[in-house]
Design a protein around this nucleic acid. Structure first.
Lengths: 239, 239
DNA sequence: AGCGCCCGTTGATCTAGATCAATGAGGATC
DNA sequence: GATCCTCATTGATCTAGATCAACGGGCGCT
């Protein structure tokens, strides 16, 4: 069964939304849909950049590591996001599936060529890259200067914002519930903290009725204003 | 005196290198050369994105801050670098001159329009943005997971690499001398450390004969291999 | 030359968060 | 339903780096 761009679920949100029906048929020939199991890597840090892809389903983490095993998560990818390093020869980070996922893969050289011939596509790619750059720069402030309390609060707000448009979020007078797509260690690797510190900060927020934790994966924001204050200035009034 | 792209000193290195003589004349009309004194801001964090520019001369820092004054430097700009946020309405960071500088300014709307009409220019911009994204992601690992010793060593190597092609670098059997374009506080704000910690790490490297510090601004790398080892694994063998 | 001033260095102490160490709470397997 | 097994929480202690506090040295100014 061939993949078919016309009935692709991320067609209208991915960079491919820049293409008209004819172009969609053309790009379809360059493409191959691939399933990736949770935990499996799509790209390895340091590898030559041979493929790029669109995320169709699931979730991925981008990571950079030191030899002794310390790891930093430098980005998260969801359906419709673009993966890989076009116009460059090395991948500076690994891309690993957090859940069973599907991606739509291009050979990098095919993709580079196709992009150069389709300025609207290149424009979409530029916009995404600029947005991602803004996001990454925001996290530099978090990693370089924020306290543990500020980091955890900022993280919860960002996750809630990012998962808001997807299914399970209920916004009723600042009451929000969402499921983290990963465990505590990954949260720690996003925030540049240890698992224990993340856990302690979360229970602190729970004790102060800023959030509720129905179970290990779900988070409910009870007081978004308070959480925002903590994210910006770290004012935790409790013991 | 009008600015003239044809005799621009950064013409061949900036994004404008994508333009042919006719296009250069066209873009020249959109452009205004502006001098910025050291310490003066070109763009403020949170401002609407009304201008973009090319750096012609001098140096700039990009910063993001918290209300209580904590600051993180999230990027440095040198001649030929591009500044500002095209295709977006907010600047998420401030841009401040580190030295007396000159920039070539565009109104953002003029620039956005011109770029859309010149795919080669947009391509250059995309390449720069992708390269910058790689750089910024590398610093996420530094800020999130590296120790003070590793950060300082990584910083010195990156500065030496970046300043290598410019004037004053002397590469004689891994012997390199360069001048930092800023003081200790700025180094601390780049590395997410305090000024005292930066100072202590530098004197430690000096005591171990890994670097020499002729004066407060100049750094000489005596043992680049050793410095690289420290940057990657923090192995400081000394007291 | 002498006087401040700014910036960097050095030292002493403190603390946020890391590390080490149990303990507990689902979730899958048989 | 008992047995693991993995992952989160909680507690006790340690430490890298922050904070607080002198001190010093280069540079511009009169």
């Amino acid at each position: 069964m061939l993949s078919n761009c016309e009935q692709c679920v991320v067609r209208n949100k991915s960079i491919c939304s820049a293409l008209d029906p004819d172009e969609l048929i053309a790009i379809n020939r360059l493409t191959r849909k691939v399933a990736i199991k949770a935990g499996q890597a799509l790209i390895w840090e340091g590898d030559d950049s041979l493929i790029v892809a669109n995320v169709v389903e699931g979730a991925f983490k981008l990571t950079s590591s030191l030899e002794d095993g310390r790891e930093q998560i430098i980005g998260l990818l969801y359906p419709s996001d673009f993966v890989g390093r076009p116009f460059g020869d090395k991948n500076e980070y690994s891309v690993t599936a957090l859940a069973d996922s599907k991606v739509c893969v291009f050979s990098r050289s095919d993709f580079d060529e196709f992009v150069r011939e389709h300025p609207d596509l290149e424009h979409k790619l530029l916009q995404r890259t600029l947005t991602e750059l803004d996001r990454v720069r925001r996290s530099m402030l978090l990693l370089g200067r924020k306290t543990a309390a500020e980091r955890v609060a900022s993280f919860l707000l960002e996750m809630s914002a990012r998962l808001a448009d997807s299914s399970c979020s209920v916004v009723g007078g600042s009451l929000q519930l969402f499921a983290l797509p990963f465990g505590r260690q990954q949260v720690a690797d996003i925030l540049g903290l240890t698992i224990e510190t993340v856990s302690r900060q979360l229970t602190l927020l729970k004790k102060n009725n800023v959030i509720a934790l129905p179970d290990h994966r779900n988070v409910q924001i009870l007081d978004a204003g308070r959480l925002q204050d903590i994210a910006d200035a770290g004012a935790v009034t409790a013991h």
